[in-house]
Structure formats: structure tokens, C-alpha cells
């Protein structure tokens, strides 16, 4: 850092041109020494932007910045940074003395907002001021692919339905056998009453003739189909 400042000291030749350093401190998000060397900062006002590459001291050195209002951005492949507003002005050091000096001021700025809408003051000072900027967060370029997980597989409705019917197919006969005769008789009676219960005629034909609307309306007719007044949904399943 000291060396870079010394460099700048000898470089600043123009009088009304400011120089400053933008430093990236060590943060929990990233150790700035691990940032790629393609990281650089631009200072844009009009025309081509002024560029400064990342130095060994984790900072960007800008020299010969003439007075004006600039948009300061750090471009990095892996991390995002806040855009900053940087104003360079020439003021009298002591009022009335006539001695001019540069003043560098930096704020946060918000893209898509008015330029005068400034955020937090990052820093201010004369020539050679050191400003700090911190990374906002890492850039994630990739989308995670949804891998196969048994739980999500089991959660899928198709699988649930299949499992349920498996239980019905294999479990029901077993249950029936274990029932005591009275309940069993009752159950069979109920099944006979059910609209889809097998009785004599072709079950497919029966299904075709089934009057769904009537059944849902709770209509009972004593035709060829004997229907229960309020069949339980579960009883539709044929065991």
C-alpha cells in the first residue's frame, strides 16, 4: 500500500487532478487476496472509462482524475460490489487563501435512481485518500440440478396412488379373512349395494350405464342397479 502511494505521489503531475485509492478490506465474505487478477475498477463519467487493475495490495489506484462526478464500479468475476458515486472537486484549502486543493468524496449510489440520491458516505479527503469498498456477495452462475431423492420419489402422487392400490389388492383379502363372520356378512351386503358391485351382468356394461349424476344427487331407484343411499367412497374399490 505504501509503495503504491509513493508511486502515485510521483505520478501526479497535473495540478487539478486528484488521485485516490480504492481498497478492498479483508471481509468474512472473501479474502481479497484470492480475487482473480482480472478484477478491475472503472471510473465513468463521459467517454471512455478510466480503468485501474487490482494491485498486490488489494487496491485500485486512480491517478490524474480531473474534477467531476463519476460512477465508480468494481468488476469482478466472482463477487459483486456496490456501485459508488465519486465526486472530485477543487476547493480552497483555507477560505480566502487562494490555495486550491482537490477534494474527493464517495458515496454509495443506486442504479436506476436519481444521481442526487446518494447513500452512505464511504469516505472523503484530499489527494491520496484511501476509500474502502466491500464485496456484497458471491456470484452464483450455476443452477443446481434436482438429483434423485427417494423421499421426493415417494411423495409423488402417482407413486402414492400405486402404493395405495397395492395395499388394497394385497391387504384386503387378508383383512376379509381375518374378519369375524358377522362383520363380514355386513360388509358383503354393503358391497352388493354399492353401485359398482359385481352382480350377474358384465361389469363394464354396468359401469357404462352408471348414472353418475343421479348417484351424486343421492337418488335411489330400485331398478336393475341397487344403490346405497350414501355409499362410502372407499367402498367403490372392489376388493
Amino acid at each position: 500500500m505504501r509503495t503504491s502511494l509513493a508511486t502515485l505521489a510521483c505520478l501526479a503531475s497535473a495540478v487539478s487532478a486528484a488521485r485516490f485509492t480504492l481498497h478492498i478490506p479483508n471481509t468474512p465474505i472473501v479474502n481479497p487476496s484470492t480475487l482473480p487478477s482480472t478484477t478491475y475498477a472503472t471510473l465513468h463519467s463521459s467517454g471512455a472509462p478510466i480503468e485501474a487493475y487490482l494491485t498486490r495490495a488489494n487496491s485500485f489506484n486512480f491517478a490524474n482524475v480531473s474534477a467531476g462526478s463519476y460512477l465508480l464500479m468494481v468488476h469482478c468475476r466472482d463477487y459483486a460490489f456496490h456501485p459508488l458515486r465519486l465526486d472530485v472537486s477543487v476547493e480552497e484549502a483555507v477560505e480566502g487563501s487562494g490555495e486550491k486543493r482537490e477534494l474527493v468524496k464517495a458515496w454509495q449510489t443506486f442504479i436506476g435512481n436519481e444521481w442526487d440520491n446518494k447513500g452512505e458516505l464511504i469516505g472523503e479527503g484530499g489527494n491520496g485518500v484511501v476509500l474502502e469498498t466491500r464485496p456484497l456477495g458471491q456470484k452464483y452462475y450455476f443452477q443446481e440440478r434436482q438429483g434423485f431423492s427417494p423421499l421426493s420419489f415417494l411423495k409423488s402422487p402417482m407413486i402414492l396412488m400405486a402404493l395405495f392400490s397395492m395395499v388394497m389388492i394385497f391387504g384386503m383379502p387378508y383383512l376379509m379373512e381375518n374378519m369375524d363372520p358377522e362383520t363380514r356378512a355386513e360388509f358383503e351386503e354393503m358391497q352388493k349395494k354399492s353401485p359398482l358391485a359385481p352382480s350377474g351382468e358384465n361389469p363394464a356394461q354396468k359401469l357404462q350405464n352408471f348414472d353418475l349424476a343421479g348417484w351424486m344427487a343421492g337418488k335411489t331407484d330400485s331398478g336393475s342397479n341397487s344403490r346405497g343411499a350414501s355409499p362410502a367412497p372407499g367402498s367403490k374399490k372392489r376388493g
Binding site: S4, T7, C10, S13, T55, N61
Partner: peptide
């Protein structure tokens, strides 16, 4: 430039 990682060590201009 730093030889191993390509970071700037110092910069100068010929004015």
C-alpha cells in the same frame, strides 16, 4: 505485474 498471478505491482506513465 506480479509474475505468479498477474496483479499490478506498480504503474507509471510516460506522460
Amino acid at each position: 505485474w506480479s509474475s505468479s498471478d498477474g496483479r499490478v505491482v506498480w504503474e507509471a506513465t510516460a506522460d
